[in-house]
Computed example of a mutant assay.
Amino acid sequence: MLKILVVDDHAVVRSGLMMLLHGKHNIEVIGEAADGEEGIQAAQLLKPDVVLMDLNMPTGMDGLTATTELRRLMPDLAILILTMHDDDEYLFRAIHVGASGYILKSAPHEELLTAIRSVAAGNAYLYPTATKRLMNEYIERLKHGENTDTFESLSEREREVLALIAKGFSNKEIAEQLILSVKTVESHKSNVMEKLGLKTRPELVKFAVKKGLLNFE
């Protein structure tokens, strides 16, 4: 029997998930929580196999922060992000902080069950359209002869800035961490984007993931 903990700030969503999952398909919902902090406490107390974690919980600790902390406290715990955000930046930030999988709330019930079983078995899970987008982008870059050696042109400081941008830090926060001026950080960011031929923050995030620059320990 797979033990599930549901973490979502909407009581109706929690109730719906519990009704859908509890006692069916060899799954037992053993608890619920309304924000990330409650979720962390419940996970430590109840020892679930899988946590279904919402991303945005405005009235308490958000799902990304909670996932980061749970990964530190319970490294073997499977955390499946269940969200309405079909957005590459949220997807990659969730992966960066240690989520085992990412699925949309609009997904069919059978897909949710598949995702739960997948992460419980120690595998990663991404919803199909996200996987397809990533594959298509990779193929397009190959078609256009992307030069993977461009990374080597970045200075050590530029790599540090790239990693922090990809982790979601603002220019001001990066400046504080690296003891630089905001203007200098902006300059490094512009240089990185120019050298790599990238134009948006999600593109920077994807590149950083591919190069293994993200370490949340």
Rank of each mutant, 00 (worst) to 15 (best):
I103A: 05
V192C: 02
F151V: 11
H10N: 14
H85L: 11
V12K: 07
E38V: 00
E69I: 13
K24Q: 08
I40F: 06
H144G: 15
A130L: 04
S106V: 07
K172L: 15
T200H: 04
V205Y: 05
S15W: 09
D54N: 01
R133W: 13
T59Q: 13
V185S: 03
V51C: 05
K167S: 15
L134S: 06
I27W: 07
A163L: 04
L5E: 00
N56A: 11
A166F: 02
L82I: 12
R72V: 14
M135R: 13
L214M: 11
E203S: 08
H25R: 11
R141H: 12
S190H: 06
L17F: 06
N147Q: 09
N191M: 10
G212Q: 00
P128Y: 01
A130S: 15
T83K: 01
A78D: 04
A163M: 03
A124K: 13
G98H: 10
E217C: 13
L178T: 05
V161Y: 01
N171H: 11
D76N: 15
R117G: 14
G98F: 09
R201A: 11
L204R: 03
A11H: 14
M19A: 14
A34K: 10
T65I: 09
R141C: 04
S106C: 01
F216D: 08
L70K: 03
L198I: 07
S187F: 11
T184S: 13
E110M: 11
N215H: 15
D49C: 06
K47N: 10
M53K: 00
L196P: 11
H188V: 02
R159N: 01
R117K: 15
A121Y: 03
V13C: 00
A33K: 00
E152H: 11
H25W: 10
D88E: 13
L91C: 07
T65H: 12
E38T: 01
E37L: 14
M193A: 06
L196Q: 10
A42N: 09
K189C: 06
L213F: 09
N215L: 14
H10M: 14
K210E: 15
A78P: 02
L91G: 01
S106Q: 13
V6R: 02
V182I: 12
D8H: 06
V205N: 09
L82S: 08
N123P: 08
A175C: 06
R72W: 09
G197C: 03
K183Y: 10
P58F: 02
L162S: 01
N56E: 15
L180V: 02
K47G: 00
S106Y: 09
S187T: 12
N171Q: 14
L82W: 05
K183T: 15
M61N: 05
I79F: 02
A121I: 04
D8G: 02
P48H: 05
S155F: 07
A120R: 01
E194A: 13
A107Y: 03
V7W: 07
F207S: 03
L77T: 00
I81R: 00
T114I: 07
